[in-house]
Amino acid sequence: MISCIVVDDEPLARSLLESHIADVPFLEHLGSFKNALLAADFLTKHQVDVLFLDIQMPKLTGIEFLKSLRQPPKVIFTTAYREYAIESYELQAQDYLLKPITFERFFSAVSRLKTPGTNQQSDISEASETTLPAHIFVQVNKKHIKVILQQIKYVESIKDYLKIHTVKETLVIKERISHFIEQLPKDRFLRVHRSYIVNQDHVTAFTQQDIEIGQIEIPIGGKYKDHVLGILKG
């Protein structure tokens, strides 16, 4: 079971999330709170795996609240505002749900959560470094399509979608880049920018500012620069 709480100043929003949580067998709802201060007090006394956290709240915003926590639980932001998406991802939020939140979108987000109780993130990272899957399946509309990992040249993020550029075609899926890279072998795929992942096997040249894959130039983001150049230079 994954324990969770809801933090939102809107009664209807809290009620909707409580209903969604009740419909998911592996979620355990521990409580709902109308502001971050009440939630903070609860967290000092209880172990919580996941916060469903609104952003625009009185006195303390969801982002301010998350930054104040020394060892925060996993967080799924729930908000009516798109403009906080980039900041939420930088805070390593699990997902960013726009209101009104459908059950389908909610279930997609919670299905990605790791089972609590063990260091799952560490386990996943170690596994991805030693296990090299030959392919993954991605959902395009209602169809699950096999993608051979070696054929992926690079992945491009555009708002809520990803373009997967392969040697044969370009597939468009609805997915977050931070979630997608978790499915890829870390010794071959490299995030070089907040909007780009590259397959090192297809890199034909690089400079201090960009990477070339054939005729395509992909920028290297400032926060990724040292790591990316260190990897590419070997």
Results as ranks from 00 to 15, higher is better:
R112E: 11
T102D: 06
Q71Y: 13
F106I: 00
T44D: 12
K67I: 07
S195L: 03
G62H: 03
Y84H: 13
N35W: 10
L66N: 09
Y89T: 05
L190F: 02
T131L: 14
L38P: 08
K34E: 12
S15W: 08
S3K: 11
Y81Q: 11
Q121F: 08
Q215I: 11
L30M: 10
E90N: 14
Y154W: 12
K99Q: 04
T204K: 05
L132Q: 15
P100E: 09
I136K: 08
L91Q: 11
K114F: 12
A134P: 00
T118P: 03
T131M: 14
K223H: 11
D95P: 03
H29E: 08
Q92N: 15
L43Y: 00
E10M: 10
Q121Y: 13
Q56G: 07
V24Y: 09
E87L: 07
T102H: 08
I152W: 09
V138P: 10
A85G: 08
K99H: 04
E129D: 15
Q92I: 03
F206V: 01
H135I: 06
A93W: 00
D23P: 00
M1G: 08
L51E: 05
H29L: 14
V192T: 12
K174M: 11
Y89K: 03
H46W: 03
D123W: 12
T131N: 14
A93I: 07
N199T: 02
L37I: 10
L171R: 01
R70Y: 11
K67Q: 12
R188W: 12
F137A: 00
H20W: 09
V203T: 02
N199L: 06
N141C: 08
T44R: 15
H193V: 02
